[in-house]
Amino acid sequence: MNSEENKNSNRDEELVQEYVDNDSKTVNVGAGVRIEGRIDGAEVSDISGTMSGTINSSNINLKSSGIFNGDMSGSDITISGNVEGDINSDQYLIVNQSANIKGTIEYSSLQVSYGAKIQGIIRHKGSVHSYTPNLDPIEKEDKFENQPNDVEEDV
């Protein structure tokens, strides 16, 4: 997983990784940094720069300067920047005032601050009202079952 990240990252990002402990499973994309690709198996992903691709991380933090294009899934997600794509949160999704989201949101617990801009479909997970067909949640559960196992092996 880590090697995949390194391939995708710029020199700037490698410098940041030297700084941080290698065991911390943290990805930090600084402001002004552009990254394309896939982040997988990270515990904390802080995005202040521009990213297009996929994030699979238990904690995702898109800062107010952050721009994200693509799909992100995790348990605790905080959005203060721009998102175009899908957001899939297993636990808490917090959308701050400065956020601008276009796309589909799936959530368990959602908090939106006054002033945030959201355009698109919002679905509550496990809701009777849900538009989601029954097959979808099962597929997603499988993905998340695999993820923790990978993390344990790395340790």
Partner: peptide
């Protein structure tokens, strides 16, 4: 035009800003 959502609400909707 402006929205705020509290934790715990159940929403299945399409949002137009």
């Amino acid at each position: 035009n402006n929205i705020d959502i509290q934790n715990g609400s159940i929403i299945n909707a399409e949002f137009f800003y």
